[in-house]
């Protein structure tokens, strides 16, 4: 157990004993990571804010159930992933076309411009690339998307991804591979933009 994990556990013990301030320190440490994870999973900053806040509240409410077998961060990530997936399911029932509209707008803007080759590093191109990646991620299954996001955007090991998803390390690697394969398929006709 590294010093960071030991410090987390000490704070967890204090929080379990009733110290809200101790949990506040954990929140301070992980608030950015949890926020970005929520964003990477749902692709919208407003939703990410709500998901991340609710994830911390749920973690605080259920802290007594944290068995300390895994790292606190892994447990927290797992809660965040579950909450993001709930949001994902809710969206599927009530879809909103924010991302689609966003991509279409950027593509139209690009088409309206002269036939000049757009600057590869321009802000618009960067936005389009992000939107396409988000769209591609949106086509993946829950486990594939989570595994890919955790691997590439949060630099988690396959072992940790397995812990977060509740599967083996080997299964986590397969989720990532299949996720990449599906993503590459969705990028097929957009290679020039990527």
């Amino acid at each position: 157990m590294n010093p960071g994990q030991q410090a987390d556990l000490k704070l967890v013990h204090k929080a379990k004993a009733g110290s809200k301030d101790a949990f506040g320190l954990l929140v301070n440490k992980y608030q950015q990571k949890v926020f970005y994870l929520a964003y990477d999973l749902v692709g919208d900053y407003d939703d990410a804010k709500d998901i991340a806040q609710n994830a911390f509240i749920r973690a605080y409410e259920r802290l007594s159930m944290f068995q300390e077998r895994a790292k606190f961060s892994t447990w927290l990530y797992r809660i965040t992933v579950n909450m993001a997936m709930d949001e994902h399911r809710r969206r599927k029932r009530h879809p909103h076309d924010t991302l689609e509209t966003h991509i279409r707008t950027i593509e139209q803007d690009a088409a309206e411009k002269d036939n000049n080759e757009p600057d590869p590093d321009s802000g618009e191109r960067q936005k389009l690339r992000q939107a396409l990646i988000n769209k591609g991620l949106g086509t993946l299954s829950k486990n594939q998307r989570t595994a890919v996001v955790l691997k590439y955007f949060h630099q988690k090991s396959s072992k940790e991804i397995g812990d977060i998803l509740g599967c083996s390390e080997s299964t986590a690697r397969i989720h990532i591979f299949r996720g990449l394969k599906n993503l590459q398929r969705s990028f097929k006709f957009k290679d020039d933009l990527l």
Binding site: I133, L180, L183, F187
Partner: peptide, 19 residues
């Protein structure tokens, strides 16, 4: 080859800053 390209794209991915 089925996933190398996606791997490269994701490795270079930088998300935009939140508002």
């Amino acid at each position: 080859q089925q996933c190398r390209h996606a791997h490269i794209i994701l490795t270079q991915y930088r998300r935009d800053e939140p508002p």
